[in-house]
Design a protein around this nucleic acid. Structure first.
Lengths: 236, 236
DNA sequence: CCAAAAGTGTTTTAAATACACCCATGC
DNA sequence: GCATGGGTGTATTTAAAACACTTTTGG
């Protein structure tokens, strides 16, 4: 009776993509379930935790199986265990991850070129989600709340961007996460004062005045995870 | 093979108590293990998750079994699942809780009066902990980090205090959590401006100038838990 | 030249911080 | 009266916000 509780690991995988309107929006991949319960409904990528694997490794593995990519950021979100959240008793350890938008673009281009993309996986804008299995709608809502929170006191937003980017790129990421526009002048000053950015001597041209490209300062962690070691938090 | 993973629930139970020196220090109850692994070592209170119970209920139950009390605050800390954290494969969902210091004092007085206190339970100051079983030392360190963090942007510190308290009481709690002294004048202004406190017309006398007693403003939540519902966060 | 985004400067507002000083009680 | 913590006042520093203005490109 202690048993009969199974442990699952799921991941909210977020990236930024450009909508038809031209603006950047948060998007995430979902998997179409083929079995009961909730057959033919969309769900978060994941699977059962096996005895040989840690939860964070299971999250990274299913993330890779779903998207073919490695995350730029991966953090535990919450362990969900309400008795009635599934017909059978399941505890889900849920992670959230960020993917670099250029990685995602390259991967979907590769899928289009080769003709075989992963089965039953589709990307959705976070503001246009389908009906979701289990309590996954609430879980995604919570992940987005955590991301909004964390963007205020860490540099997680960099997890969406390629290695070189303009301040407008970065501000666009912040605006998509927070759902509001930011003053370009003040944004520049704040992010420059944070010491997280290293200016390069390269510029992006193509429209109007060229914008300077920046890089991450890799001395600064993407987010403070406190005293937890790598075996419990990110990928080894 | 999916099975053979067991789910445990443990809780870091914190309160404030007065040391011999007279200053307030954080303290927590530990349980002496009677079985292998780690027999005769101290460990966090907890037990196996049963199929009829949610993790948060299990946490509240074992907290009550250990201390005889109900917590003023209870929040999930983290799910620990590294493969090698125990000789057998165990995933521990860990919570952290706050107890009101007056509740703890009353309970230990009752235990002394009746003569039967819980077996194998002892309270330790957080800066004077014994050798701990499993990864529980790291877990406690992480809980204290979370508490220090959270006290900066929420009113969790009130979880230690009785229903009526002076500003010096509250400041003492903050100082014990943060490990540094705060300016009484500025502390007063900040906490008054937060709108969390309701002044009463009562005063505490006994030494020097009487100090006004305050109450919680129960309209304000102890901490923002975001979009998570009560079935996953606190006690129902 | 004009539109538009990149980038700089300046002013205002709000919030910590530091610290001097007065108040009310027990002894 | 005096020591002590309770409580108020005020100046300084810091950071956020608002917004005018200059710069540099493509067309």
């Amino acid at each position: 009776m202690t048993q009969s509780i199974r442990v699952a690991v799921s991941t909210v995988i977020l990236t930024l993509r450009r909508a038809e309107s031209g603006e950047a929006v948060l998007a995430l991949p979902l998997v179409l379930r083929t079995r009961e319960p909730f057959a033919d409904q969309w769900a978060l990528p994941g699977g059962w935790l096996t005895s040989a694997e840690s939860p964070v490794d299971a999250s990274a593995r299913t993330l890779s199986e779903t998207t073919g990519l490695a995350p730029s950021y991966l953090e535990q979100l919450y362990a969900f265990g309400a008795v009635d959240r599934s017909p059978t008793r399941v505890v889900s350890i849920v992670y959230w991850a960020l993917l670099r938008q250029d990685d995602v673009d390259a991967q979907s281009e590769a899928h289009r070129a080769s003709g075989h993309a992963p089965e039953n996986v589709r990307w959705f804008d976070v503001h246009d989600l389908p009906q979701l299995a289990f309590d996954h709608a609430k879980i995604i809502e919570y992940a987005l709340w955590r991301l909004r929170n964390k963007v205020g006191y860490s540099r997680v937003a960099h997890g969406f961007l390629p290695s070189e980017f303009t301040l407008a790129d970065l501000r666009e990421a912040y605006e998509a996460i927070l759902g509001k526009n930011l003053d370009p002048a003040n944004f520049r000053r704040q992010v420059e004062a944070s010491g997280n950015l290293l200016p390069t001597d390269r510029f992006r041209t193509g429209s109007h005045r060229p914008a300077r490209l920046y890089r991450y300062n890799t001395d600064v962690a993407l987010a403070d995870r406190g005293p937890l070691g790598p075996e419990e938090t990110s990928i080894r």
